[in-house]
């Protein structure tokens, strides 16, 4: 017997690419279903016809293709307007780094249409970018490895004089190599320049244990923070299994982060704990990580809380979570008829 009728909510989610380097969408959707708060209708938003989430019909009710981020905000807004006319979306949760810029930009327009998002501001989004991270850390009092943005190979020696070897050579968008000598650094510079263009970022090497924190900020304070250490890593560098940790330093760091920056939305802090225990922020991902379903297992359903915040409800900060909860990722073969694939590819809707 139902105590009361649950409210109908239509939530659209991107990042349905639950592949070997997975997007967080499917995990976010599972978390929403687990919350049992609402009478849910989940709309998948996909870029490619083979994103597995499209075909998971028990948890994703229907999926629409949306234009690639590179098509820009006007194409995205036009497509979302069409979808909204069909589906009457309450909340959109974007999950790709590459699409966030566009979703943040059109946030106000979506709101006018009645679609809620819960995203960081453009300033916050850009401040935590790889190229600006050091300045960001300095401003807010976080430990961040020193770095130097360089345009020429001639600049490596002055950077190494400052940081010493080994140092990390990073591409503008992706990829990083640890270089132990000048020759290795030069080689990495050429390789990354050819692939991603200039500038190249040279970063101080910080050794220690890598830990990650999935967190949610409401714009003022931290609502939830779950620290996790990867136990097994795939050849693509993604977590295959991980475990929640008891680590008040990391929780405090996440709290300070949300408070200092006024962070709104989900995030993942990639942290290196040095041997003497200092937490260096290596990267700030401005969205939920792919392992976000572990927060549900740990007792803090971050995606469901984000939906409540997006809808304007207040959510009080979580205090407890289960330490020692693990996730072990697995792959699962869905069986699909070719018609479904054709339907998605040609009509952009299923």
């Amino acid at each position: 017997m139902k105590a009361k009728q649950k409210e109908k909510r239509v939530i659209a989610v991107t990042g349905l690419n639950a592949i070997d380097s997975p997007g967080p969408g499917v995990a976010v959707i599972r978390a929403l279903h687990d919350s049992e708060e609402w009478d849910l209708r989940i709309i998948g938003l996909s870029y490619e016809a083979l994103e597995p989430g499209i075909y998971m019909n028990d948890i994703v009710h229907t999926t629409y293709q949306i234009p690639y981020p590179s098509a820009g905000t006007s194409a995205l807004l036009q497509r979302l307007t069409e979808i909204h006319a069909e589906e009457n979306i309450d909340v959109i949760i974007p999950n790709f780094d590459a699409e966030l810029f566009n979703f943040i930009k059109i946030g106000d327009k979506l709101k006018e249409m009645g679609i809620h998002t819960f995203l960081p501001t453009l300033e916050q989004f850009e401040a935590r970018d790889k190229l600006n991270l050091f300045a960001f850390g300095k401003k807010h009092g976080f430990l961040v490895p020193k770095d130097k943005t360089i345009f020429s190979i001639e600049e490596i020696p002055s950077a190494s004089a400052e940081f010493g070897y080994p140092l990390v050579v990073k591409g503008k968008y992706y990829e990083a190599t640890v270089a132990y000598t000048l020759e290795q650094a030069q080689k990495a510079f050429h390789k990354l320049q050819a692939k991603w263009g200039l500038p190249i970022i040279v970063q101080e090497f910080v050794s220690g244990t890598e830990v990650n924190v999935a967190a949610l900020g409401d714009g003022e304070q931290c609502i939830s923070a779950i620290p996790m250490r990867k136990l097994y890593i795939t050849d693509k560098g993604k977590a295959w299994a991980g475990i929640t940790l008891e680590d008040p330093t990391l929780i405090d760091l996440a709290k300070k982060f949300c408070k200092e920056t006024g962070w709104r939305g989900g995030m993942e802090l990639e942290i290196m704990r040095t041997l003497d225990g200092k937490p260096y922020i290596m990267e700030v991902n401005p969205r939920f990580p792919a392992w976000i379903y572990l927060t549900v297992g740990a007792g803090q359903n971050q995606p469901a809380s984000l939906v409540k915040l997006a809808l304007g409800e207040s959510v009080s900060p979580f205090t407890d979570y289960h330490v020692g909860k693990m996730f072990i990722r697995y792959s699962w073969d869905l069986i699909v008829d070719v018609e479904k694939f054709q339907q998605v590819s040609a009509f952009g809707k299923i």
Binding site: E48, A49, S70, A98, S345, A346
Partner: peptide
């Protein structure tokens, strides 16, 4: 041909 390739973050746009 219906694209069955890998996920492509840098797609084409229609004009």
């Amino acid at each position: 041909q219906l694209n069955a390739g890998l996920m492509n973050k840098f797609g084409l746009k229609t004009e």
